[in-house]
Design a protein around this nucleic acid. Structure first.
Lengths: 223, 223
DNA sequence: ATTATCTATAGATCTATAGATAATGC
DNA sequence: ATTATCTATAGATCTATAGATAATGC
C-alpha cells in the first residue's frame, strides 16, 4: 500500500487525481469508524503515506474533506435508486405495491454496496455513522431528500387511504433498519453467536423489503 | 443554571453527589450531540460551571466518564424491560405473540424516556448516538445483551417454526428503527415538512410494535 | 513555468497532574 | 483532618499556513 513502493503515475493530472482519490478513500474509512471528530488530518495523511499539508492543499480544511467524502458517492447511490424507483413506477402503472417500491429503494442500494466492494461498503458505513449526527443530518437532507420523497410518493399511491403520518413513520422505521445494516457494527454477530453476520447484505436483502412492506400494511388495520 | 446563584448544599456527601450528577448530566447531553471525540472535558466543565480539573477529580479520565454516563441509566432501562418481558411471558403462558413481546420491549422503553423528561430523552439520544460506534458497541453488548436475548427467546416461542436467523435479523430491523427514533435527529420533521416530529414518541409507540410484529410474520411466508 | 509535495512552525487547543486554597467534619 | 474546589502548568496533540524543493509541462 505504501506510496514509495508503487510506480508514480505519469502525468500531473493523474498524480492529482490519484492523490485526491487516496485521501478520500482513507478519510471515508476513518470517518466511518470514528466520525468527524474522531479522525485527525494526520491520521488521514498517515494512512495514505503523505504529509498532512497535502490534505490541506487539496481539501482546504477538515469540514470540507468530510463533505467531499459524503458527496463523492452520494450522487451515484441516489441516482441509481431514483432510476430504479422511476422504472418501477412506470412498470407498475396505477397499481404499485409497497414491497415493489421498497425493493427498488432498498435492494438497489444494498446491491450497490455489496457488489461495489470494500470502498462502497466503507461509504455505506460512513453514511450510517453520520446519519444520526448534527454534521450528517444536513448532508443527508441535501443529498437524499429527492429519492426519499420519490419513494414516499409511490408508497402513497400504493396506500391511498393511509394518512401521510403513517407513511412517514413507516419510512422512519425503514431507514432505521437500513442504517443499522449499513453500519455493520458486528452487534448482530455477537448477539447471534456468529449465526448472522453484519456484512451479510444478501441475508438482509432477502428479508428487509418484505418485512417492511408487511409493517406498512399493518398500519392500515387500526385496533 | 449557574452554580454561584444557587445555595450550596450543606453536607459534603450532598455536594459530592450533586457535582457528580451535574457532570454526568452535562456529559450525557454533550456526548449525545457530538459523541466521545466531539466533546472536551472543558466543554463539560463549562456547561456545569466548574473547573475542568474537577471532572478529572471525580471521573479520572474521559473514557471513564463516558462509560459512567452509559452505565448510570442502563440498569434502569434494561431492568424495566426485563421485568415487562417476564411479566408478559408469565401472562401469555404457552402462547405468547410477537406483538406482545415487542410491546413489552419497545413500549416500556419509549414510555421510560418520554415520561422521564429531558434527562431520559438525552440518555436515549446518547445511546442511539453511540450504538453504531466502536466505543459504544462493547457497552451495548455488556449492558443490553440479557434483555435482548430474553426478547429473542419469547419471539422464538411465538414463532417455533422460524429459523434463528430470521429471528435475529428481525431483531436487527427492530433495533434499527428504535435507535433511529431515540436519536431524534429532526430528519423526519424536515422530510414530512413538520407533519411528524422527532420527539413525538407517542406517535412511534402507536405504531412500532404492530409494524415490527407484522414484519416478523412476513418472514414465515417464503416466496 | 506550473503544479505536486515536503519542511518548518505558529498558535490554539486538550488531557492530565501537582500542589494550593476553601469549605465541611469531628 | 478530610474532602471539595481552584490555580498553574507540563506535555502532547491538532489545524492551518508560509515558504522551500522536486517533479512535470510546454
Amino acid at each position: 500500500m505504501s506510496r514509495a513502493t508503487r510506480k508514480k503515475p505519469r502525468s500531473k493530472a493523474e498524480q492529482r487525481a490519484e492523490s485526491i482519490e487516496q485521501i478520500l478513500d482513507a478519510a471515508e474509512f476513518l470517518f466511518s469508524k470514528n466520525g468527524l471528530y474522531g479522525v485527525t488530518l494526520r491520521d488521514v495523511a498517515k494512512r495514505v503515506g503523505i504529509h498532512t499539508t497535502l490534505v490541506h492543499y487539496y481539501f482546504q480544511d477538515k469540514q470540507n474533506l468530510f463533505e467531499e467524502v459524503f458527496a463523492r458517492r452520494a450522487g451515484v447511490t441516489s441516482g441509481r435508486r431514483m432510476a430504479a424507483l422511476e422504472a418501477y413506477e412506470a412498470e407498475a402503472g396505477e397499481t404499485p405495491t409497497v414491497e415493489g417500491a421498497l425493493r427498488a429503494f432498498l435492494d438497489t442500494d444494498l446491491d450497490l454496496y455489496y457488489e461495489g466492494g470494500e470502498h462502497w461498503m466503507n461509504y455505506a458505513a460512513f453514511c450510517a455513522r453520520v446519519s444520526n449526527t448534527p454534521e450528517g443530518a444536513e448532508l443527508m437532507d441535501r443529498h437524499f431528500d429527492p429519492v426519499v420523497l420519490k419513494l414516499v410518493s409511490i408508497v402513497k399511491k400504493a396506500l391511498p387511504h393511509y394518512s401521510d403520518e403513517d407513511i412517514f413513520w413507516g419510512y422512519h422505521f425503514v431507514t432505521g433498519a437500513l442504517m443499522n445494516t449499513l453500519a455493520r457494527t458486528g452487534r448482530i454477530d455477537r448477539l447471534s453467536d456468529g449465526l448472522c453476520k453484519s456484512d451479510d447484505f444478501p441475508a438482509v436483502k432477502a428479508r428487509i423489503a418484505r418485512f417492511m412492506a408487511a409493517g406498512f400494511m399493518s398500519l392500515g388495520t387500526k385496533v
